[in-house]
Amino acid sequence: MNTSAQLRAALAASLTRDGTLTDPHWRGAAETVPRELFTGNYFEQVPGSVPTRYRPVRQGDSEWLQGIYTDRTLITQLDGNIRPNDVTDGTVAGSPSSSSTLPSLVLRMWRQLDARPGQQVLEIGTGTGYSTALGAHRLGDDNLTSIEYDPVVGDAAAAAVKAAGYAPRLIIGDGLRGDPEGQPYDRLIATCSVRYIPIPWLHQVAPGGKILVTLSGWGYASGLALLTVTGPGAATGRFLPGYTSFMMARPHDRPPRPTLVLLPGEERPSRIDPAAIGTWTGSWVAQLAAPSAERMGAGAEQILWDVSSGSQARTAPGPDGGWTVVQRGPVRLWDHVEPAVRSWQAAGEPHQEAFGITVSASRQRVWIGTEDGPGWDLPI
């Protein structure tokens, strides 16, 4: 059986070959920081289970260490309070609420942030502490502050970071409010997603500093943005290539909802193929246009549901070709989505790297191509 050091070296070598690790300093961090200290026991999804169920994988199990050094996200908590050790028999259903993100994504984001020793860096979302330890190894303990919302998760991360030999500044609190002491930072990296850029971040990162964050929403679409702060409360940036998603910051997560019941409404032809919003960027555009809606369904049969207003939109293939949409409620969701998708299609259906974002004290706007291109305000 391979040792932890051997598995770390093999993972680092693999990530170097695929272009993730282009900086020898970050490769050194990947080869040094023992991920098993941070994941501990974790959950494996039970294939084919509906609703999704998970089984615990514990230290001592034959696949435990090998799984830790596979490049994948490991679920470490369900429903905000269920951890692997809490499951004493069989499997458990739940929604992931904390995880150890796949190493390639963590390392790629650190590289994209372009943080260097001597710069002050604020990390939002300590999580298991693995990303924090990688940052501390590369940047130095004195240059890194990390904030975790969940005190149980944060305490476990603090113990793991200490066991790994690092001592960055760790805070339990609401990361969306930033550092309670408000000191200026050169860089901010978020390992959770948000619906909009929290205003405190824009005042705690110094002008010229950078913010790397995943923007997401209740439609479950995501895009990774790198912003440069241009002044207090203001920033501009672009979305990056690739496909990045994180769990939503809990204060930004969707509200509780009842069981969906599809109700009658007004029917008309759809002017777009509903399957367009089932693609990675198409779903992102639909979410920008209808930020209060959740999206369900697949292909031509899409469902949008705004819990706060009770509004619904559902599409289906038309009886004579094309597609139909049924809408009800005060917000005509499909009426918002259609022109947004058509604007995106007119631009050539680009990936999110063709999108940008401009943030001011009064609005946060995502746009295609240039600032004067088609755009949508985020729900601040």
Rank of each mutant, 00 (worst) to 15 (best):
A156C: 13
A156R: 04
A157H: 01
A158K: 02
A158T: 00
A158I: 00
A158Y: 01
A159K: 12
A160S: 03
A160L: 03
V161H: 03
K162W: 11
A163V: 01
G165M: 02
A167K: 03
P168K: 00
P168Q: 04
R169P: 07
R169M: 14
L170N: 00
L170V: 05
I171F: 11
I171D: 05
G173D: 00
G175L: 11
L176M: 09
R177M: 15
G178E: 07
G178A: 10
G178Y: 06
G178M: 09
G178W: 03
D179S: 01
P180V: 11
G182R: 07
G182P: 06
Q183D: 13
Q183C: 12
P184Q: 02
P184G: 08
P184W: 00
P184K: 07
Y185A: 07
D186I: 01
L188E: 08
L188M: 14
I189Q: 05
I189T: 04
A190T: 00
T191I: 03
T191R: 09
T191L: 15
S193Y: 06
S193M: 07
V194I: 14
V194M: 11
V194C: 09
R195F: 10
R195A: 11
R195Q: 07
Y196E: 07
I197F: 13
I199P: 08
I199V: 09
P200V: 04
P200T: 06
P200K: 05
P200C: 09
W201Q: 04
L202P: 07
L202E: 12
H203F: 13
Q204A: 10
V205C: 11
A206L: 15
A206P: 08
P207N: 07
G208F: 14
G208L: 09
G208W: 10
G209S: 12
K210A: 15
I211H: 04
V213D: 01
V213I: 04
L215A: 07
L215Y: 06
L215Q: 05
L215T: 01
L215K: 05
S216Y: 02
S216G: 13
W218M: 11
W218G: 03
G219W: 02
G219N: 13
Y220E: 11
Y220T: 02
Y220W: 12
A221Y: 12
S222L: 03
S222G: 10
L224Y: 02
L224F: 01
A225R: 01
A225H: 08
L226D: 14
L227P: 04
L227Y: 03
L227S: 07
V229D: 01
V229I: 10
V229K: 10
G231H: 04
G231M: 07
G233S: 05
A234L: 13
A235W: 00
A235R: 03
T236K: 12
G237M: 04
G237T: 00
F239V: 02
L240I: 03
L240M: 12
G242Q: 08
G242M: 06
Y243D: 15
T244D: 15
F246W: 06
F246P: 10
F246H: 05
F246K: 00
M247A: 09
M248S: 13
M248L: 09
A249V: 03
R250Q: 08
R250K: 14
H252M: 08
H252A: 05
D253P: 06
R254C: 04
R257T: 14
R257F: 15
P258T: 00
P258D: 14
T259C: 07
T259P: 13
T259M: 14
V261R: 11
L262S: 10
L263T: 15
L263P: 13
